Amino acid sequence: MDINFQYDAVKASDRLEILTAKRLQKLFDKYDFLIRAEVLFKKENTASPETGMICKIRLSLPGPLVFAESSHGTFEVSITETVNDLERQLRKRKDKMKHRA
């Protein structure tokens, strides 16, 4: 499993990297065709306290890339929602791959 972490206006955090890696490891275990993950943590100034902590994840796999992002009040919630969105996309991709074979 190859995961590249990037930070934009956020201090690097081992805790966030460990949490994200645990969530992504489940996807890598379930979907063996995954190659790499690019994770970006970004902080934006927003009017709402429920947004602004952004997590963007791009997965490399055969065919088009899979991408998801979410913005919440904490990075933990953003990570969870982003990984859940990726899981939905990967499930659809796997179903398409099965039907073509």
Rank of each mutant, 00 (worst) to 15 (best):
A21T: 15
F5V: 09
R23A: 13
L59V: 06
A47Q: 12
G52L: 09
A21L: 05
M97K: 14
L34S: 01
M53I: 00
A12S: 15
T80C: 00
D95A: 14
T74C: 02
L65A: 13
T82F: 09
L27A: 02
F41C: 04
L61G: 05
R36M: 07
L90P: 08
S78L: 07
P64I: 07
G73N: 07
D8F: 04
M53D: 11
N4S: 13
C55A: 12
L27C: 02
R58F: 03
R88S: 10
R100D: 11
N84I: 00
E44F: 06
Q6H: 12
L90A: 10
C55E: 01
A12K: 13
A37I: 02
L90M: 11
T51G: 03
V10A: 06
I35T: 14
T51V: 13
F41N: 03
R23S: 11
D85P: 05
T20F: 03
F41Q: 02
I79L: 10
A12R: 15
E69I: 02
E50C: 00
F67C: 07
K43D: 12
A68P: 04
G52I: 10
R58D: 07
D14G: 02
A37H: 04
F33T: 09
L16F: 05
E87K: 15
K92F: 05
K26S: 11
E50T: 12
K30C: 03
T74Q: 05
R36K: 15
I57A: 03
I54G: 03
A68S: 15
T80N: 11
R88H: 11
A37L: 03
L40N: 07
K98M: 13
L24T: 00
D29Y: 01
V39F: 05
Y7S: 04
A68Q: 05
I35F: 04
C55W: 05
K56E: 14
G52V: 10
T46C: 05
F75Q: 00
K43N: 12
V39M: 04
D95H: 13
P62Q: 09
D32W: 05
T80S: 14
L90E: 07
R100M: 12
S70L: 00
I57V: 14
M97S: 15
Q25K: 15
L86C: 06
P49F: 03
R23D: 07
S70C: 08
I54P: 01
D29P: 01
P64S: 12
E44V: 13
Y7H: 08
P64F: 08
L40C: 00
S13Y: 06
K96F: 14
H99A: 15
T20R: 02
E81R: 15
L86H: 00
H72I: 01
K98Q: 14
L16N: 00
Y31M: 06
S13V: 02
K30E: 13
F28W: 06
K94P: 05
I35H: 08
K94T: 10
L61D: 03
K98S: 14
R100C: 11
T74N: 07
F67V: 11
R15H: 10
D14Q: 08
E44G: 01
S60Q: 13
D14T: 06
S70P: 03
V77E: 14
